[in-house]
C-alpha cells in the first residue's frame, strides 16, 4: 500500500515536472533580433530545452542498454540469421505498409508490397527475401508519410522518450499505424505469450537489429559532430523528407534554392550582397 502510494507520488511528481517543462517551453518567446529570429524559425524547435533533456535521456539509455545488446547481437549471430530476423519482421509489417501505399494512391508500390509478401511468405517462409533478390526491393511506408502526402504540415520538432526524433505529424501517424496493425489486434485476443506480446517483441527485436546495422555510422557521426543534437535533428528531417518522397527528387524541392544566386567570390562579400537591399531602400 505504502509502496503503491510512493510510486504514485513519484509518478505524479515526474508528471508535474513534465507539465512544467512543457509549460516553460511553451512560454519561451521567440527572439526579436532578425538573425536570431530567422535561425529560431528555421530550426522549428520551440520545445528545444525539453527535447534536449529527452535526447540526453535516450542517448544514455542507448549507451547503457541498447548499443551493448546490439553489438552482442551482431557479434553472436551470423549475417544470415540477422537478415532472416529482419526479413521476418519486415514481412509482418506488410498490412501497415500496404494500407499506406494505397492511401497514398501508390498503386505500383502497393503491388510491390503485395508481391513481396506473397513471394517471401510462400517461397521464403517469411525468412528469406526472395523478392528482393529478384529485384523488388523493400520499402517502408507509415501513416505519418501518408499525412505528408495528403498535405499535412509536420509541425515542430519533437524528441520522444524511447522513440526518438519525431513531429506531431509523425507521432499521429505512429498511433494510427498501431491501430492498423492486425498482428497487434491478434495479440489483444490471444493468451499465448508470444502472440500476446508480439507487438512489443517485434519492436524490441527491430530496434536491436537496426541498431546492430547502424551503430558504427552513428558513433562516427557523434564523434565528428560539434553539436550532435542539431546534427540528428537535421538528418532526421532530411531523411524523413526523402522517405515521404519515396527517395525521388522533385526539382522544386532539391535543396538548391540558395544556389541560384551567384556565389560570393571573395570573403566578406556576403555581407555586402545581403545588406545592399536595405541600403537601396
Amino acid at each position: 500500500m505504502s509502496m503503491d502510494s510512493n510510486f504514485c507520488l513519484t509518478l505524479r511528481r515526474a508528471g508535474l515536472g513534465l507539465v512544467l517543462a512543457l509549460g516553460l517551453a511553451g512560454c519561451a518567446t521567440a527572439p526579436t533580433d532578425p538573425v536570431e529570429r530567422e535561425i529560431y524559425d528555421e530550426a522549428n524547435d520551440p520545445a528545444q530545452p525539453l527535447n534536449e533533456a529527452i535526447f540526453e535521456f535516450n542517448m544514455a539509455l542507448d549507451k547503457i542498454i541498447v548499443r551493448p545488446i546490439a553489438k552482442a547481437y551482431e557479434f553472436l549471430l551470423p549475417d544470415l540469421v540477422r537478415d532472416s530476423v529482419r526479413n521476418f519482421i519486415r514481412n509482418l509489417k506488410t498490412p501497415v505498409i500496404l494500407a499506406n501505399d494505397i492511401m497514398q494512391g501508390e498503386t505500383d508500390r502497393a503491388g510491390q508490397t503485395m508481391g513481396r509478401f506473397l513471394t517471401n511468405t510462400l517461397l521464403g517462409g517469411g525468412l528469406f527475401d526472395v523478392a528482393g533478390a529478384a529485384g523488388i526491393p523493400y520499402h517502408e511506408e507509415d501513416f505519418g508519410q501518408t499525412l505528408a502526402v495528403w498535405g499535412v504540415d509536420d509541425g515542430p520538432y519533437l524528441m520522444l522518450p524511447l522513440l526518438g526524433p519525431s513531429s506531431p505529424r509523425a507521432l499521429a501517424g505512429f498511433i494510427v499505424d498501431a491501430g492498423l496493425d492486425p498482428f497487434r489486434w491478434w495479440g489483444y485476443h490471444s493468451d499465448r505469450p508470444v502472440i500476446e506480446y508480439n507487438t512489443a517483441i517485434r519492436a524490441g527485436v527491430e530496434l536491436i537489429d537496426n541498431r546492430s546495422r547502424n551503430y558504427r555510422q552513428l558513433e562516427s557521426l557523434e564523434e565528428n559532430s560539434l553539436d550532435f543534437y542539431a546534427t540528428v535533428r537535421s538528418l532526421y528531417r532530411q531523411q524523413r523528407e526523402s522517405m515521404i518522397r519515396n527517395g525521388m527528387y522533385d526539382d522544386e524541392s532539391i535543396p538548391t534554392i540558395g544556389y541560384e544566386d551567384a556565389a560570393p567570390e571573395g570573403e566578406g562579400t556576403p555581407q555586402a550582397e545581403l545588406s545592399s537591399p536595405s541600403v537601396l531602400n
Binding site: 528555421e42 553539436d227 542539431a230 546534427t231 535533428r233 523528407e241 535543396p255
Partner: peptide, 23 residues
C-alpha cells in the same frame, strides 16, 4: 558546392550543426 547522399545534403547538415554551435 554540395554533396547530397540519399537526399541528405552535406551543406544543410553542416549548416544546422554550425548554426547551433554559434547560437
Amino acid at each position: 558546392i554540395d554533396i547530397i547522399v540519399e537526399r541528405v545534403s552535406m551543406v544543410t547538415t553542416q549548416k544546422e550543426e554550425f548554426v547551433s554551435v554559434i547560437r
